[in-house]
Each structure stands twice: as C-alpha cells, then as structure tokens.
Write a protein that binds this DNA or RNA. Structure first.
Length: 775
DNA sequence: GTATAAACACTTTTT
DNA sequence: GTGTTTATAC
C-alpha cells in the first residue's frame, strides 16, 4: 500500500477508515481529490467490487480524471466497473434502465436549458400570459427550485405559500405554467436537468423494490463537493446509503457557491444530524498555495458568519504579496493584465497553461480576448457560448434527437424548416395548434397528414411528407448503423453541409469546422466504446449523455498550452500557478443581485475565496473605474472584498506609474472608514461625456493603444450631445433629413426625423447610423 | 414565405 | 456590445 505513505495523518485516516458515515472537511488545496482517489483505490485493494462503489462528482471532468488516477493504481480493468460520474449522468443512466417504472421510455430526450426555455416560452404564449411579466428566466428559476426541493406540480398546486410568493412577484399563474410544462415534457418523452434528479426520487419513492436493488448494489457511496448538493441530491444519497450506511461526503463549506441553483450549504453543516455516528476528518493543510495566498484567503472568509470551524494553513514559502491594480477603464485593465502575462512568460518563465484569468461574468471575457490576441498570447476560453450551444451544433443534434425520439417537440421545431424547405411559421403554428387541441403528437399528425382534416394545400402536404420520410429513413438505420456513419449521412442528406458551402464566408467555414469537430467527437465515442459485446456503437448510444456535456469535456490537445479564461464558478477545483482575478468592483463582484440579501453577499465572498485559492504562487487582483455595461460606460468602485483582505498580504499599485499623477488612489484602504472612495469622486466619470474625459486623461503612451475606442466614443457622445432639433443629417438608407424632435434618455434617445425622400421616421440614435450635415 | 434592417433585451454564476 | 424578436419590403 505504497500510496498511503504519500499522505499526512488525517488524510491517511480518511482513506483507511472506510466503514460507516464519514464527513471530510477539505480546505482549499488540502489534497481532497487525492484522498478521494486513494480511498476508492483502498477499497478496491481490499476486495470491494468496483461495481459496488458509487462516486458522485460535480463535473464529468472531475469524474474522468479521478477514474484515470484510480486506474493507475488498481488497473483499468478494475477501474472501468466503478460507478463514477455527476449526479446527472449517473442517474440518467439509471433512469434509462428503469424508465418504464415512471412512464418514460428508455430513449427519453434530455432537454438542456435552452430547450426548457423555448418550451416555457411556447406555454406562456399558449396561456395568453404577458411575456414581459412572465420572463422565461424567472419562470424557469421558480420551477427549477420547486423541482430541486421535490415539489411536484400537484404539490405546488396544493401549496398556498409558494403561490402567495408568486403572486407577490406578479406571477400568480406560475403553477399553471409548471403543470403544463411538466405535462408537455412527459408527453414529449423528455426530461430537463432537474427532472433527472426529481424523477430518480420519484422512482425510489414509488418503487421500493428498485430502490432496494440499488441500495444492495452500492455498498460504498462517495460524494464530492457535498456543499453544493441540493435537497433532491441530498435525498438520493440518503436513500441509497440507508442500507449499508457507508457514505463518505467530501466538501468545504467555505466553497459553497451554487445556492442560486438550489444547493444547500446546510447539507454539509447538518451532516452530523443525519448521521450521528459519523467520523469527522478535517484536512487543514494547504499544499497548493503560498502562505500569503492562504492567509489572505483566510482573512476574507473570516468575515462570513456561517461556517464550520477550521484552520487552513500552508507550510509552503511565504511568497509574494497579492498585487492589486486599479485602472481607469476596463480596456486598460485588459492591457495591464495582458502585459503582465507577457512578463510572466518572457521574464518569469511560466508556461501559458499555468496562467488563468478569472472573472465573475462571462461578458467580461471579450476584452481579454482582444488584448491577449493583440499581444499574440494564446488563450482558451471556457464557458460562455459553449461548443454545444452553437447554432450549427444544436441544429444537427436536434436532428439526431428527433430521429431517436419523434415526440421531441423542441427538436422538431428546430429542424422542421432548417435548412429552409418552405415550411414557414404559419404552417408550423397551425400544426402545433392542431396537435394541442387534438392532444396528439405533432409527429402523429404528420404521419397521417393526408387523412387529417387540417386543410393544408397540396404543396405544403408534399413538403411535410418529404420531411417525415427523410427522418423515418434515418430512424430505420439507427440500430444497424454505426454512429459516425449515420451522423454524417444526416448532415449530408438534410442539406446542412451544403448550407455551409453555399457561400464561403468566414462564418460558414467556422461552422463547417465545428460540425466536423462534432462528427469527430462522435467517431471518438464510437471507437472508445466499441467492444465484443457491442460491435456497433449506435447514434443513440452517443446521444444518451451528450446533453450533459460541457466545454470542459471537450478538451482539445491543441489547447494544452494556453492561458485559461473562465468564470470563477467554473474554476472550482482547478489550480494555476498565476491567477488574475479581474473586475473586482462593487455590483460586479459582489454581483449587483447579491446587494440586498446578506446571505447572498456571503456566497459572493465564498466565491471570492474560491477564486483566490486557485492561485499557487502569484495572485493578482484588478478593477476598473469605468466599465462598459451594455455598450455604455458605467462608473464603478473597487469591490469591498479588496478592503476585506488583510492589508499585510497586499501590494497595492495604483495607476500613477502609468502616468496619471496625483495622490494615491488608495487612501480608503489606509483610513478604512466607510465607503469614502474619495479619489474616485475627483475623477468622476458619471457625467454626460464620460469618455472624452477619460480619453483625455490618458497618458500619451496609452492614447495610441486606444484608437479602437475612438469610434465608439464619438458615437455615444454625439448621440447624447451633438444632435439638435433642426440639425440636418444623412442616413445611409433614408438619405437626407432634418431632425424634428428629440426625446428619451441615456441610450434610449429617439429622434423624429423628416426625410426628404421617405418622410417622417422615429429612430433610436444609438442604432441609426447618422451623419451630420454641417449647415 | 423569406430576407433584411430596425428595435429591443440583456448580464450572475451551470449540471 | 451581442443576440434575438419585430416590422417591412420583396
């Protein structure tokens, strides 16, 4: 058991004490993954069958990496029988096996959040509700949180408290939407993400025999990132472990950052109540980061009230102080960070892959992409518009989904007229209306289109028939054809590939490459899953969990040595030698949404803790005084979190050295009294012409770099100031005209213009490309 | 029915 | 600034 020597005392105990419930509190960088890996390896080495060990992780990537490491210790032949994956992937697998017990087929579709939103949207329309009040995002949030708390539509209907809350938010009909949404999902043989957990609970509740089978099978259960489990997940674990009681949960309450998704930090805080005879292991030594980083992180998290007592410490070198840099604009922040990265590479000798830029929101990535590209620094962007969210990928996947499950209405709507085959909105609306009223699947209407009294003309009927025939012809090949061959055939015969070749625009070339990448992925899947038992790997086998994949699961070897750009959320569990934590501003980090609730600010603080503790040797914090938000510059103040770090660990640089002159920007850190961001006021940018001021304030050396800014600046400034009633203007389409009146504020200023040729039009100045004709 | 441009909406975080 | 929905002309 050589691996045991690589562990400290507590770690070793956590690995070898395998019987009964165990709670492992794992501070950041304390070797949590190592403990989990060795614990499982230890079980296997002691004769436990791999198929009786269930390990639940937060991401597919974490599961895959853990499995690889276990393979290295016990061999791949053993490791491959382990049940290891995310809650969603493990239980979707179980649900496919047990589908009939809960009224689904084993080929049910998994709806991702855009499918869910699209379905909700159609329901809101159908119920004649105001789409401006019932925003799909909020409605989905309500439904999702209901599902994660195991509140079914029936229970929701019976729950007056929930409905009172809804009424308070001016959305009293949520319960109706929820009922309809659930019914439609089931009618479409589809489950959304939350259903995978909810339906597992329903299965275990309604089929005691099935539950008993799985209880018997899973003798040992491991849960990683337990602080981020929701009630639904919690209950699954509790039920499954009830027979053997060997449940080991690992987590760090200080890193609980998913409450917006229903995660309950209480799950980890209350573990002791659920499993009174539990053993507690506290991993407190951080092996990842310098003392400075660990202590700085401790000084922040100490500000939170809810936490399990622990003392995380590091015995690594003290290390550099955390550099804090303020810049005038978000663009300058981009330049500063990119230059610093350039130095990290060429002066400090780091590799690109050892460096990450972490931000609170995906929208912040763009500026870093630009500045990195300008310095020719290779980067890899995670999240945001993920590979699987791209239109061309979704379109093709929708075909595959429809071929496998004809009832999948969202897939149907996506592809019925793509590529364009002359089946427009009117036809589609009538079709869906008809099927809603008759309570029949759209697909069944189509199959019987000739005998249905729907009254389409001959041409339409022929087009629809053509569509049905081609889908059917693919479906027939499902069982007998390899995934890649069928996937390619679909892409080809539906005319999707042809679309990309119609015009050789850069966009089309990129789309074509993305489709190629998807097809390659299918080929990979096919080859790695082919075995003697399964000589043909079918497309539906590939599609089973494709909805659960994310960017992180699509690692391209070419992306190995690149700077990482991602949100703080997606950085959880990762580590980098150098971390740039950017956009540390009030209303951004902590997010504006968290401003009202103290609990939410605590979560933001934990998020900040997660961010800082990703760094091994260098951490760098930055903020900008002006940031573009929806295309308009907005003034901002440095985040309260900067102030909360013990000053001893910080090296505060203001932008004086880049030539601004004047007093230190950071008097507020010295006096520490209240939010007196004095020096900001002096350079207040909140007046009408912010960008001109900012621009003129810039040192000459940087003005040259800012050329791109120029055009944008002029545009905004003119739209708020330079247009007047009576001004003659030229429009690229409508030609010459004269401004009759101006109304509205900020970015919504409208002007009524009388054009010489086309008469009066009211245009938003933000969009209208007007040229001023000097008089 | 389709192709364009204007209007509008939007930004928390993700399995 | 980006992506999506709508109004309008073909």
């Amino acid at each position: 058991m050589e691996y045991l020597n690589q562990l400290n005392t507590v770690q070793r105990q956590a690995v070898t004490e395998t019987q009964g419930p165990a709670l492992v509190i794992a501070g950041a960088g304390s070797g949590k993954t190592r403990v989990l890996t060795y614990r499982i390896a230890h079980l296997l080495n002691n004769g436990v069958y791999p198929s009786s060990v269930l390990s639940l992780t937060f991401t597919n990537k974490a599961a895959r990496e853990m499995k690889e490491r276990i393979s290295e210790i016990v061999g791949a032949e053993t490791a491959k029988y382990l049940w290891m994956g995310t809650f969603h992937s493990i239980f979707s697998r179980i649900l496919r096996t047990e589908a009939e017990h809960i009224g689904y087929s084993s080929k049910f579709t998994i709806y991702d959040s855009s499918d869910s939103k699209s379905l909700l949207k159609s329901i809101i329309k159908e119920l004649n509700l105001d789409e401006a009040v019932y925003k799909v995002g909020s409605v989905l949030g309500r439904i999702s949180s209901a599902k994660n708390n195991l509140v079914t539509p029936e229970a929701y209907f019976a729950n007056t408290a929930l409905q009172t809350e809804d009424a308070g938010m001016r959305m009293p009909k949520i319960v109706d939407i929820y009922r309809k949404y659930s019914a439609k999902l089931k009618f479409s043989d589809a489950m959304d993400f939350d259903d995978l957990l909810l339906n597992t609970n329903i299965l275990f509740r309604d089929c005691p025999q099935v539950l008993a089978d799985y209880q018997k099978r899973f003798k040992y259960i491991m849960v990683d990132e337990y602080q981020d489990t929701n009630f639904s997940q919690y209950l699954i674990v509790k039920k499954l472990s009830a027979l053997h009681g060997n449940v080991c949960v690992v987590g760090d309450d200080a890193q609980s950052i998913y409450s917006f998704r229903g995660a309950k930090i209480e799950n980890i805080l209350n573990f002791k109540n659920d499993y009174p005879n539990y053993q507690l292991f506290k991993l407190e030594q951080n092996y990842r980061s310098t003392q400075t980083i660990v202590n700085a992180a401790n000084s922040i998290i100490a500000k939170n009230s809810k936490q399990i007592q622990k003392k995380v410490f590091s015995e690594n070198e003290v290390g550099e102080k955390i550099k804090v840099v303020g810049t005038l604009t978000d663009k300058e922040e981009g330049f500063v960070v990119s230059s610093a990265i350039h130095n990290n590479i060429y002066t400090d000798g780091f590799d690109y892959s050892e460096i990450a830029i972490l931000y609170r929101t995906n929208a912040q990535s763009r500026i870093f992409e630009e500045t990195l590209r300008r310095k020719e620094i290779p980067y890899r962007l995670y999240g945001g518009l993920s590979f699987y969210d791209r239109k061309e990928i979704k379109d093709l996947l929708a075909y595959y989904k429809l071929i496998i499950n004809h009832r999948d209405i969202e897939a149907f709507k996506r592809v019925i007229n793509y590529p364009v085959r002359g089946i427009g909105k009117t036809t589609l609306d009538r079709l869906i209306d008809f099927s809603n009223h008759a309570n029949v699947h759209v697909w069944d209407v189509l199959e019987n289109i000739e005998v249905t009294e729907i009254g389409f003309n001959k041409g339409t009927v022929a087009k629809l028939k053509g569509f049905v025939d081609i889908i059917k012809s693919f479906s027939e090949k499902l069982e007998t054809t390899n995934a890649y061959d069928l996937a390619l055939e679909v892409a080809d015969k539906t005319g999707i590939l042809k679309e990309f070749f119609s015009q050789k625009t850069p966009e089309n070339i990129a789309r074509y490459e993305n489709v190629q990448e998807l097809l390659n992925g299918i080929k990979d899947h096919e080859e790695s899953n082919r075995s003697d038992d399964m000589p043909i790997v079918t497309l539906d086998n590939y599609m089973e969990n494709v909805s659960l994949l994310t960017d992180l699961d699509n690692e391209d070897p070419e992306d190995k040595n690149k700077v990482t750009l991602m949100t703080v959320h997606s950085s959880k569990g990762l580590e980098f030698k150098v971390v740039y934590l950017v956009g540390l501003e009030e209303d951004l980090f902590p997010s504006k949404m968290s401003a009202i609730m103290p609990d939410d600010v605590e979560e933001e603080r934990r998020l900040f803790y997660v961010a800082i503790t990703r760094a091994e040797v260098k951490a760098h914090i930055s903020y900008a005084e002006t940031r573009y938000k929806y295309g308009t510059p907005t003034p901002s103040r440095p985040s309260r979190f900067i102030k909360e770090i013990d000053r001893d660990f910080l090296d505060i640089k203001d932008d004086n050295e880049s030539g601004f002159g004047g007093e230190s920007n950071f008097s507020q850190f010295n006096t520490g009294s209240g939010p007196s961001y004095g020096s900001f006021k002096k350079r207040n940018v909140a007046d009408n012409k912010p960008k001109i001021k900012v621009y003129n304030d810039l040192p000459l050396s940087q003005r040259n770099l800012k050329k791109i800014d120029n055009s944008v600046n002029n545009n905004t400034v003119t739209s708020s100031g330079l247009y007047n009633v009576g001004q003659k203007v030229n429009h690229e389409k409508f030609g010459r005209g004269i401004i009759e009146s101006i109304e509205g504020e900020d970015s919504n200023i409208k002007a009524k213009i009388i054009f010489d040729s086309s008469g009066a039009k009211t245009l938003l100045l933000k969009f209208a490309k007007l040229e001023i004709i000097p008089s």
